[in-house]
Design a protein around this nucleic acid. Structure first.
Lengths: 173, 173
DNA sequence: TATTATTGGTCAACATGGCTGACATAAATC
DNA sequence: GATTTATGTCAGCCATGTTGACCAATAATA
C-alpha cells in the first residue's frame, strides 16, 4: 500500500533545527525551573538556620566576589530597589557579616566588604553550590559545560549581557 | 632569568578537567543567577499588569501542561506547602483562570484544568519564554543545547530527577 | 462494623523580601 | 549660593513563603 499521507516523512513546518520544536523549548523552561529550585535549595536550608534568606545570600556572594563595591554597584547587579536592598544589607551589617566604610572620593558611598564571619559563610554556601556544579559538570563533560555556559549567556538580556561583560570580563570566557 | 617559580607552568592541584576549576564553578553559579533573573523577567511584567505573580504563573504553566491534575500533584512538583498553593490557586479560580472539578474516584480531590482565559494567558506567557529560548538555542546550536539540557538535568536532586522522569518521560529525552 | 489513621484541602497568623513614597545628606552644576 | 542629581534611610504595602489548627473523605484495622 502506497504511503498516501506524506506527513509521516515530511515535517509540516520548515525544519529550523530539531532543538527548536515547541517541545524542546518547553523542556528548557521546565529544566530551568527544576534545576534552579534544587540549585538554591541546599543553601537556603543553611541560611534558614542562621535566620537569613536567599536575598542575604546574593548580597554576601557578590560582595565577596568584588570587595569594596558600593550599594549602587550591588543594585545594578541584583536589579532590585535600593529600599529592598537596604533592609537586607542593614541586617547583614548588624549581624556582623558585612562591614561598610565611607567612600574616600565620595562620602555618600559606603564601600561594602565581608567580615571574617561573612567570609566564612560565603565560603560555606559557595562550596555547597560549587559541589553541585562539580558533580554535574563531571557527569556531563567539557563539551556539555561549554554548551551550558553558552546557552545561559544567551538567555540573559542583550543589553545586560554587555554590561556584565564590562563588569566581569571572565564571565563569558 | 630562569623561571624559579614553577607555579607559572604547573598547576597546584591535580588537573581534573579545565571546567572544574573554582572559577568555572563560580561562573556556573553566576550564569544561573543572571539567566534565571532575565528568563523570568518578561513574564513577571505581564503578570504584574494582571495583578498576578510568579507563583500564579507556575500553577498555570503546570496545570496547562497536564490538565486534570490534582492539588497533590502540583505540590510534589512545586515543592511548596499546600497552604501556600491554596492561596494562589483560590485566587486563580476566583479570577476565572482555572476550573476545578470534583474527582470521580476520590471525592476529596479537585481536578485542575485551565479555562479558556487560563489557556490564553498560559500561551501568552509560554510564548514569551519560548521565544527567549528559541533565540538562545539558535545562537548556540544543537550541540550546545544538548549540553545545556544535560547539565541542568544533573543539577536536579537525584531522587527528584527519578521522580520527574516517571512523571514526564520526555523531560530528559 | 466501628474506630482509627491517612490523605486532600482550608483558614488564620506570621516572616521574608519584593515594591512605592517621602525624606536626608553629599556632590555636582548653574 | 541655589538648584539639581546621586546615594542611602525610614515607613508602610503586597506577594508568597512558612507553621499550626482544623474539617472531610477515604483507607486500614481491631
Amino acid at each position: 500500500m502506497a504511503d498516501i499521507n506524506p506527513s509521516n516523512k515530511i515535517p509540516a513546518r520548515p525544519q529550523k533545527g530539531l532543538y527548536l520544536r515547541k517541545q524542546d523549548l518547553r523542556r528548557g523552561i521546565e529544566l530551568m525551573f527544576f534545576a534552579y529550585r534544587d540549585f538554591t535549595g541546599e543553601a537556603d536550608d543553611v541560611l534558614a538556620e542562621l535566620g537569613l534568606g536567599r536575598a542575604h545570600h546574593r548580597v554576601i556572594y557578590f560582595v565577596g566576589r568584588q570587595p569594596n563595591m558600593t550599594v549602587s554597584d550591588l543594585l545594578t547587579i541584583l536589579k532590585i530597589t535600593k529600599q529592598s536592598l537596604s533592609r537586607v544589607l542593614s541586617h547583614l551589617v548588624a549581624e556582623g557579616y558585612i562591614r561598610q566604610e565611607q567612600g574616600a572620593r565620595d562620602k555618600r558611598q559606603r564601600l561594602l566588604s565581608l567580615t571574617y564571619r561573612g567570609e566564612d559563610l560565603e565560603e560555606r554556601l559557595t562550596d555547597l553550590q560549587c559541589k553541585r556544579f562539580a558533580a554535574a559538570f563531571s557527569a556531563c563533560g567539557g563539551e556539555a559545560v561549554a554548551g551550558f555556559q553558552d546557552v545561559l549567556a544567551n538567555l540573559i538580556n542583550e543589553d545586560e549581557r554587555a554590561a556584565l561583560q564590562a563588569r566581569y570580563p571572565d564571565l563569558f570566557e
